[in-house]
Amino acid sequence: MLHSLSKINVFALALVLSTIVFTGCKDDDDSPIPFPDTKVYDLESVADPNIEGTATFVRVDARTTSVTIVLTGTPTGGVHPAHIHANTAAEGGPIVISLNSVDGTTGTSTTIIQEDDSGNPVTFEDLMEYDGHLNVHLSEDQLDVIVAQGDIGQNELTGKAKRYELEEAAVPGISGTVLFEERRNGEALATISLEGTPEGGVHPAHIHENSAEEGGGIVYTFNPVNGTTGMSMSNVAELDDGTPFGYKDVLKYDGHVNVHLSPEQLDVIVAQGDIGVNAD
């Protein structure tokens, strides 16, 4: 897949470079940058495990950015709307910049950006620092179905991560992990992955004070674990009381994670594990 994506990206970049030359000939006041800055973000599969790819941001000039989406696995004849949204993918957020739809036959789309949907100027530098994510949707009539997705700008992951085990508790057979991944802005993406959760279940999850053996109050609330998939993804930026709380804070925190049976049965813990200083 990487080989085919790289060939398409080279072709897309060549188109952008040719546009730069043409723009430079037309407007001497908007001189092109000889070696445009480029940033590639991964777009992970969501609703369809066969669809994934990249979004390549290229600085064309001081006011203009090209965004090229390249996906594999899209259906022939499909038309897939794409947008830049506010906030992280785990949080979700409104559409801020509408992109050209991805052609299902080729798996590609290219959009030239100079402003957001409200008419505010947007530069390459703005996008590199933006608190946002990019979604590719199934169709115009099914925007709630996301086929590929990726965090961009300050929400990009640095590659640093810490995984903690979640052992089975009151319900035999349910166990897994919670993975914290550092973002460039210092926040964290938390992914809970469990095996053995019942189909259709909704399992609240929290960070609690103290070790699991001691027990303690709730300080952070994750998005609930989906029993069908066994998954939950949350953005960790602050505790429930508003206290700043990012990736580095997780690593030194005196706490533990509980996953509960249901919103009505928080006293029944199905999986549990120490984090931070209690897991060292």
Score class of each variant (00 low, 15 high):
L127E: 03
E140G: 11
I152V: 14
H206D: 06
S6V: 13
I69K: 00
V178H: 04
G200K: 00
E182N: 06
R183P: 01
D144K: 02
T108L: 13
S101A: 15
Q272A: 04
P263T: 15
D144A: 10
V178A: 07
F222L: 08
E214C: 09
T23I: 12
D116S: 14
G159T: 12
V225L: 07
P172L: 08
A170C: 05
H3W: 11
V10S: 11
E91P: 00
E238P: 01
K26F: 05
S175Q: 09
G217K: 10
E264Q: 15
A279Q: 02
F124K: 07
L261Y: 08
L15F: 03
G255F: 06
A62L: 09
V250I: 15
T72A: 13
D30S: 14
A188Q: 10
G242R: 09
S193V: 07
Y164R: 14
V259I: 07
T88V: 01
G196E: 03
D274W: 08
P32F: 02
H3V: 08
A170G: 02
G24T: 06
S234L: 05
T197Y: 14
V277N: 02
E214D: 15
L138M: 05
T228Q: 01
S118Y: 06
P36S: 05
V96T: 14
G242T: 09
D42N: 12
G216I: 12
H137D: 00
D280N: 12
A14G: 11
A55Q: 01
F57R: 00
F222T: 06
N278P: 12
V46E: 03
A82V: 04
I112E: 01
L179W: 00
Q142M: 07
M233F: 06
Q142Y: 12
V58N: 03
D28Q: 10
I51F: 04
S109E: 09
L127N: 08
L138Y: 13
V79T: 12
P49R: 05
P198W: 06
K162M: 12
I152A: 07
G227V: 08
V259A: 04
T19A: 14
I69S: 02
A148F: 06
D267F: 08
I20E: 02
T111S: 15
S139H: 06
E195H: 13
D254A: 10
H83I: 05
H133Q: 05
N258D: 15
G196A: 10
N185Y: 09
H208M: 10
V268M: 03
